[in-house]
Structure formats: structure tokens, C-alpha cells
Design a protein around this nucleic acid. Structure first.
Lengths: 217, 217, 217, 217
DNA sequence: GATGAATGAGTCTTCATTCAT
DNA sequence: TATGAATGAAGACTCATTCAT
């Protein structure tokens, strides 16, 4: 094993890791400053490479942006879907764990900052917004819809308008995410409610509306 | 009461209206394109003045942006509070009309675009975000909380965690507003639900959770 | 009359002259360095304005380039055509004066540097090449063709293939122009021939080929 | 005769051919796009090597460009001179075949693109322009001068100013070459004349001017 | 020798801001 | 007051050149 210590070579060859490192750096900066206010120089610097290197891996700013979405969000949605498909719990428990897992695996991850980003930049980058709506929002809604449909079919839930209910019940989670990555970053909001209590109440209200009485342990 | 007779009333009135016209034009463009992508050239053009004139009334882009937020949002909050304070209906009806009125007077107005703006630019304008949280979100939440507290106190509603429920139940409306001003502008989302049906379902689910059975006509 | 001497105002307002000044500066630099090697910064500097000002009058580099052609060459061609149409000399004299005038008004002007430019950049800016071929080369050739056709019709010239002869007889002038703006700029060519003698010989050879015997004074 | 047995003949031959292959690829691209618009990446790719390899053989873009000019043009000049020196035809026939051969061996070859290159880049590469003027234009003109002088000396041609006539009569061929590699690449020019007819007419007009009557077969 | 990942200076272009008129 | 011509700093992107492998 060589004990040779390299004397600060001007750069290092890391073809494999570079894209992921760049996407990672870009995620941080895009989420923090928004799309327009993020300079590619800074992304490169944070990834520890020069501006030019970035262009070896991505065609430009928009391409990088798309890569960020593809690499960071889409896998998380898939994961969520697989979890629910594999679950054999009763539907009330499944709904509860869905909300909690959604938060645990996505909501409180860095990647959730993308939601704010998309909302902020949709008008200027319609392609990205459409991509996000189709690849993220649609599939994600489908997972919750599956739970509701299953519960209603089994008689565990009172019948509801599933499509509308999905939007209504995803909203608190999504807006919480958006809030935390925007206003929540600069001030503790008025009557801020801790996430645990928030999820608890949200779940309880939804189950009540579905006709599931509170458990008494 | 002034006895001053203006020599050129039309022109002077104009002068007093200028700032409002500029704020109006700026609101449209900021909502549509976001802060960074909005050019002052375009704001001036839409207001029918030259770019230089804009600088007679505002110190710069930031100042204009802040004016837009402050001038546009504050009046709406006041209006919302007065409406609810004046109501004397029963609480279920009051809740229902609150959601519908919120939409009718704010959600579908041009001003609701501010929500998206704040979220998108919170990181770059922290003081505005704080202002918004304190002056808009807080008071607005308070109105809904009042309704819930009154309903619970009167025994019309089952007891709930009011603060948390307020956040949960405002979220669908707020996110809808944000969505319509962003992704909704460039594509019809997946399982899009019309606003009427959306409000209906939302109200019904909330009332169910509050233990109010559906009316039978 | 004011004796006030302005103390170096940071800039001067010259809406009318600016475009012409910029086109002028651009002509110099484009001819000297070619299209790609000319920096807009330098064009602006030579015109005495800042880089930004250039963009007030031209959409970009290519637009500026087109303007240079339009403003500097096209008028000269028109002038040539009007001269010939108005002439009432015999055709031999007309041909001779055409060659000399072409040189005097165009060949030795700064504008003739465009010929080299077009040739050099045609591949990268096909639009410009086509524009030049249609607006400059075609009309210019037509003028010479008119002279030849008139001479042949009147029996002053021996019949020749007019279209081909036009290309053959314009070539020495055009190539001379191209040469002087390229190789001729950096060295006095081998067996360089002064322009007067060159025109003389060219005219004489052409007239000989057309069957016009040399004058004996 | 070397007794050295190369261990890997194919690979070694390759090594010796590399520079020529690179020059060849560069000629194509320089002629097609000009100096500035040609990327070394593309040159390397066309030669089937990596960009780095190019730098093993040439100091940089300029060096490669100079190599292209020098390597490509010199052999052609020599060839042209030898051809004419060897001819024993009468001078009218010799002149005719000179024009046609010039076209056949040089004008329609890839190498003729150099003419356009030199013209386009003379200002940026003055030493190349001088080299071209001395090593190419001079010797080439000399050949035509030789023909004219011989014809006049033998009484086959009417006396003319040989130096000037040489420039006049080379011009149509050279300009044709330049045109075909520039404007001709992107549009069929106005009153375009096929090369055969062009050469025919050019030769006929020159011979007429030299007092050689058309042949009657 | 050969490779191609990495570099960074250089250029076009945009737009908030200034200021002579 | 109002104008809009002029400014210049800033950022995306390119590509000749270098150098670790």
C-alpha cells in the first residue's frame, strides 16, 4: 500500500461521482435561492469543480434543474408506492402510516424543497412544471387514492369523493413542506404547530371524516 | 377641508394615482413571472409611464416589490376579518360560507397571486416573509379559529385541536391558490378537481370530522 | 450663445447619430478582424459608447453585421446602376468608365472590405451570404450585363456569352478588392501591379476581346 | 536499408501518419467553417484521436493551422510548375490546357479551399499570408507569365502587359474557387455559370485579346 | 504515447439603475 | 415632473489548453 501523499494536484478525476455531486450541490442552492438567483458558478464551487466541468455533465442550467428533479424526487415517490402496495395493514393504520412515512422519507428531506422551487418557477419553465405534475404529483396522488379506494371497498371507510379528498388531504402535507422551505426558513410562523402534533391531528380528522372512530387503547 | 384649488386637476390626480398604477402593474407581472424575471421596463410600460418615472416613486425593484406586497395584501385581510365578525349564522353554516367567501373574495382574485410570490421569494426577502406571516397568515388563521372555537363552545362541533385544525383546513385552499398561480398556469394537473366540487368536498370532510352530519334536504 | 463648457458629462444623448456611428465602427473592425474575432466591446468602444448602448440599436452581433452590409454596400450598387442607366456615351467608353467608376466609388472605399468578410463568413452565416448574393452580386452583375448587351445590340461589340463574360470581367476587380483587404494588408504581393495600370490593361483586354481596336490618339 | 524490425508495424506506421491525418481533418474543417469556428475537438474526432493527442503533434490551434496551409499548398505548386515546364504544345493550346488543368488539378480539389482560408485569415495570420503570397501566388503567376512570354516571343500572341494580364486572367479562376468555397456553398448565386462554360468563355476571351482567332474545326 | 476529464479566461447578452434633457 | 438614452456589473455558456491517469 502506497504511502505516497499526492501534493495537491490541481484537480482530480472523478467521472463517476461528479454528476451526483453536482446534482447535490444544485439541489441545495436551487432550494435555497430559487432557480434564477442560483449561479452555476456557485453550484460548481460547492461541488468542488470549475464552471466548465459542470458543462461536461449537463447541457445547461435547465438540464441541471431537470436532473435534480429526476434524481431526487422521482425515486422517493416510487418508494412510497412500493411501500403501500406491499402493506397488509388495515386501511386506517395504512393511512396513518402513509402520512407519517411521507413526511419521514420525503417531507423532511432536502428533496422536498423542490416543491417550493417548482411552484416558484413554473411560469418561467413550463416544461419543468409539466414534468413535475406528471412524474411526481400524479403518481403521488395515485398512492393515496389507492388507500382510500381499498378502504372504501372493504367497508372500512365511509364512501367519499376520492379524487377530491386526495387533493384535500395531501394539501396540508405539501403546504407544510412549502412553508418550511420558504417562510418557515426566516421566521417561526404564528401559531406554529409541531410536525408530530400536526400529523396526528391531520390523520385523526381524516379518519373521523372517513367514519373511523378514535381508538381507545 | 382644503380651499386650495388645483390648477390642473386631471394632471394632479394622475400624479397621485401613479404609485397605485405602478403597484398594480407590478402585481400582475410579479405574480406572472416572479421577482427576478420581471423587468422594470415592462412594469413601467404596463403602467403607461417611462422607466425613469418609476424611480420617482420607488427606490428600486426591491422597494417596488415590497410596496406591492404591503399595499395589496393588507386591505384584503381587514376585509376578511370584518366579514366574519359581522356574521351571525350557526357555526356549520358559518364555516361553509367562510370557505366559500375566502375563495370568492380572495382565492380567485388577482391578489391571491401574492401567496405564490411570498413563498417563492421568502429566502430573498425575509422581512417580507415575516411581515406576511404576522400580518396575513396569523390574522387569517385567527378568523377560522374563532369559528371553530365558537362552534365547540356551543356544542355544535366535536372538540378538536383548534390551532392544528386551522392549519390543516386552510391548507387545501391556500395550496389551491398557489397551484393555480404556478403549475396550474401551464398545464391541467393530474386528477384536477373543479373548484366548486373541491370546496364542497373540503367543507363536507371538515364538518364530518367535526361531528356535523350531512344535511338531508 | 452660451460660453458654458460642460464638465465631461458621463455621456451624451445622440439618438440620431448612434446607429450610423456604430455601423461605421463595426465596418472597420469586421473588415479588419473578421466576424468572429471582432468583439462587440471593441465596436462599442470605437463608437465611443458602452457595450449596453449597442444593444439599444441592434439586436445582437448578427443584426449589426447585417446592418453594416445594408447601410454600406447596397447604396453604392444602386448608385452604380443609376450612373450607367443615365450614360449616353458609346459602349466602349461606357465600359471603360464603368470599370474605373466601380473602383473609384466602391473598390477603393472602406465598404469594399465587406466582400472579403462575406467570403470569409459565408459558411457560418448563410443568411448573410444569400442576402449579399441577391442584393449585391446580382444587381451589380446586371449593370455590366446591360452595358455588354447594349454594345452587342448596337454592333459596337462582337457577340459574346454575356453572363459568363460578366463573371469573367468582374472577377479581376472583385479579387483585387479582396486581395487588398487581406493579403495586401500585410505584404506587397509578388509582381504587384498598380491599380491604374491594372484597370487600363483589364479594360484594354476586354475591349480587344469584344473586337474594339485600341484608339490611336 | 534498415535492418530494424519494428515490433508492431501497424501501430508504428500509424504513429507516423498521425500528423498527416490531423492536418487532413483540419483542412476539411478549416475550409468548411473558417479558423475561429473550427473546434479542435472536432478536428481530433474526425482524425479519430482524442483531443489530447492533437497536442502531442502540434503546439496549438495556430500551429495546426499553419501546418495545414504549409503542408497542403506547397506540393500543389510544385506539381503545377512541373506540368507546364514539360509541355511542348503551341502557345494557344498551352494556354487553354493551362486553365483547364489548373482547374482539374487544383481548382476542384479540396486544397483550393486554402485560398478562401488565406483571404479570410490574412489579418490574423500575417506571416501565413506572406508565405502564401511568396510561395504560392508568385510561382503560380510565373507559370502563366511564362506561357504568355513564350507566345509573344514566337509571334503567336499579340504583345500585352504580361504582369498585368497574368493578374487579370488568373482572377476569374481564383475568384471562382473562392466563391465555390464560400457563398457557393450556401446558395446558387445569381446568373451562375457552369465551370465548363466558364472556362471555355474565359479562354476564348483571353485568346481573342491575344489576337488568336477562334478555331474552325 | 494516448486519453479525456478538468480548467478558466473570454464573449455575448440582459437589465436595474442613473442622469442629461 | 417626466423621459428614455446610456451605463456597466453580472451571469450563462464556449472552447483552447492542461495534465492526472
Amino acid at each position: 500500500m502506497s504511502t505516497h501523499v499526492s501534493r495537491n494536484p490541481r484537480w482530480e478525476r472523478r467521472k463517476e461521482q461528479r454528476p451526483a455531486e453536482l446534482v447535490d450541490a444544485a439541489l441545495d442552492l436551487f432550494v435555497e435561492h430559487g432557480y434564477a438567483a442560483t449561479r452555476l458558478d456557485d453550484v460548481a464551487a460547492r461541488a468542488g469543480v470549475s464552471k466548465g466541468t459542470l458543462y461536461l455533465y449537463f447541457a445547461g442550467k435547465e438540464d441541471l434543474f431537470k436532473a435534480v428533479i429526476r434524481e431526487t424526487i422521482v425515486p422517493l415517490i416510487d418508494e412510497r408506492r412500493r411501500d403501500v402496495e406491499a402493506s397488509e395493514a388495515n386501511c386506517a393504520a395504512l393511512l396513518e402510516s402513509y402520512f407519517h412515512d411521507w413526511w419521514k422519507h420525503f417531507g423532511c428531506s432536502k428533496a422536498s424543497g423542490i416543491c417550493k422551487l417548482i411552484v416558484a418557477e413554473a411560469a418561467n419553465f413550463p416544461d419543468l412544471a409539466r414534468f413535475f405534475a406528471e412524474e411526481v404529483v400524479g403518481p403521488n396522488d395515485r398512492v393515496l387514492a389507492t388507500i382510500l379506494e381499498r378502504g372504501i371497498a372493504r367497508g372500512e371507510f365511509r364512501p367519499v369523493d376520492v379524487d377530491a379528498a386526495v387533493r384535500v388531504w395531501m394539501a396540508p402535507l405539501v403546504l407544510k413542506v412549502i412553508w418550511l422551505h420558504s417562510v418557515g426558513m426566516v421566521c417561526s410562523g404564528p401559531n406554529d404547530v409541531g410536525i408530530e402534533r400536526f400529523l396526528e391531528v391531520h390523520t385523526r380528522l381524516a379518519l373521523s371524516a372517513l367514519g373511523v372512530p378514535p381508538e381507545r387503547p
